[in-house]
Design a protein around this nucleic acid. Structure first.
Lengths: 352, 352
DNA sequence: CTGAAAGCGCTTACAG
DNA sequence: CTGAAAGCGCTTACAG
């Protein structure tokens, strides 16, 4: 007879040994059934299956891995879990990995904690590590070197321009070129930048795209753009956008179009402009970034840039898993995703 | 000398044995340093530490666990990763657990996959399992029984009324009482329900609260409320709210206030009403649920219910971890969280 | 089908 | 400080 636990219900079985004793078979036999090996009588198989269903026994995954079974785990480092597009990527990636038989270990990679997070992933013997978001450059580059030294494949989603990093990223320069051409065609010549910092960090950076488009049209970047980011603390993006909008309105030389780093800032700006009784797009144009669902619901609805997250993540999953069995590559893998401008009500002809 | 890998860089060390050989010490000694045990010469300790930093060697977590080390992992089952308040709870919980030394295994629990997800958690020997969201009742109850049979503590966040389940949940009845009293005080007597289904599922359910408040004021539920949920498919909440708003406007007996299941539906409704040229709150009042940040940015800003997510999750983490060493309880733990009504511009006096 | 054995990567006594 | 041994939960030959 099997031993019962205090409550008198089914015993808690914690090992194949205990389970085998409970079924009345040898450990070896149970193991064979568990692994679908041939040469067993149908009756025995059924006996084990039944006991398995009854007791809910699950073999210890850690022991399995020690015996050489792959962990089938991927570590995912998130910049945070609060930015909607980042979470959307996480959700899609988790699903894509699950579909391919991998489970996800998710950690938020706060500044200074990167080493600890990656160490934890390595100690869990994950088969690959993904980074989603933007991180401190030196820190993430050091982590990537560490991963490479361990022979663990990696992939960075979003942050472009890292040394030796496999990267898949939206071409933000192309995105801003589309935005700028749209606005220039509408007659705008003066642009407010909300949260878009003034130091281009890579070839595919937003400012690079803005610069390039202005130059192609014979316009001067410094004469055409204005940034007021220094005026406000950026804690809550909505509020940040709202305050920035007010500050732009207070300028003597007021831009005719505002370009926001993301939809939240743009929506905050819409609110700030509404509070100042401006009518959009008559008085001013506003452009967001990310095409969150809410962008189709604001008043006015928001012109913004779509990231094609589904496509990005499908590519990401394939790029990632293609590295698994393969020998390490000499050159990093770089993939750029094409953005799409979504024109809605918040942009219109520049006021004369 | 240690063996080098093909690229000629530092060797990939996969076990304490390899690492010990690399440092030129005994496995036992290395293990002692790793575990901070006494009786070692400072020089030896430093030698190991240095090699540890250089090679980035991490002991295999699976082997550690086999030797009896706790896994310090918690499994988290999510209904989905697309609902902002659910993701906010996940983010807060992950952080709270990390602070207490636990890492999180996160899986999306799609209908029919619950068994597989929980089995995976059990095979990983997680120390507890959390469910966030609303699940198929029979399925989640079966999973909870399975967890209890394995002696693994659990906690359900959000879904109230499950048999034998440890639960922490917003008191949605109290929330709706606050909403209804606010609107009744403003003179409203006719209410449109958007996405709030017509079968009360528990004592702390929204409809229970609406029923109770109307009854307390001597009003009849069926005479005062109208639901048009059957008219539209609910794929995208924003769009669902928009379409529902239009449908309510088409009714001969039009409600003076709309109560939405969540902020997204409410924001969609705002858009739908704006498209029909209604002015709010003059022509109609709208109430959301969740107090997402965007609710302060819409036009008009949205009256809604705050869930107190930070408080919920702090309580959750404590309730969860308090079960860890403790003997199983006879009665499930039930905690109710107090909601807070946040009044903004979208609600006003009922039109005469 | 059973049973004893080896070994995955670790830690922890134990004797040198 | 070293080295050999036992054991955590598994699988996989191997001989019965």
């Amino acid at each position: 007879m099997s031993k019962k636990n205090p409550s008198g219900s089914a015993p808690i079985l914690r090992s194949t040994a205990e389970f085998a004793r409970h079924v009345g078979l040898a450990r070896t036999t149970v193991s064979r059934v568990l692994n679908g090996q041939p040469g067993l009588k149908q009756k025995t198989i059924e006996r084990v299956q039944r006991a398995l269903a009854e007791t809910g026994f699950t073999p210890n995954a850690h022991a399995l891995h020690l015996k050489g079974k792959r962990t089938q785990m991927v570590g995912i480092c998130m910049e945070d879990l609060l930015t909607p597009p980042a979470v959307k990527k996480l959700a899609a990636l988790q699903q894509a990995l699950r579909k391919r038989g991998f489970s996800s270990l998710i950690e938020v990679f706060t500044p200074g904690m990167g080493r600890e997070v990656v160490r934890h992933f390595l100690s869990m013997r994950v088969e690959a590590v993904v980074f989603i978001g933007h991180f401190h450059q030196e820190e993430i580059e050091a982590r990537i070197l560490e991963l490479m030294a361990h022979g663990t494949p990696h992939l960075v989603i979003d942050q472009f321009g890292l040394k030796n990093a496999n990267t898949i990223s939206l071409d933000r320069a192309v995105a801003m070129e589309a935005v700028m051409n749209h606005l220039l065609d509408l007659g705008h010549r003066s642009f407010g930048l909300l949260g878009i910092t003034r130091a281009p960090t890579s070839r595919h950076d937003r400012l690079t795209g803005i610069h390039a488009t202005l130059k192609a049209r014979g316009l001067d970047f410094d004469a055409c753009t204005l940034t007021l980011d220094h005026l406000h603390e950026r804690n809550n993006d909505f509020d940040y956008g709202r305050k920035l909008a007010a500050s732009f309105l207070a300028q003597s030389r007021r831009p005719t179009a505002l370009l926001a780093l993301n939809d939240a800032i743009a929506i905050g700006a819409l609110r700030g402009l509404h509070e100042a009784d401006l009518k959009l797009p008559r008085d001013l144009s506003v452009v967001g970034f990310n095409n969150q669902e809410v962008a189709a619901m604001t008043t006015p609805t928001l012109t913004t840039v779509d990231q094609n997250i589904a496509g990005t993540i499908e590519t990401a999953a394939e790029v990632l898993l293609s590295q698994l069995g393969a020998p390490p590559r000499a050159k990093p893998i770089i993939r750029l995703i094409e953005p799409a401008l979504v024109v809605r009500e918040s942009t219109g002809p520049a006021r004369a």
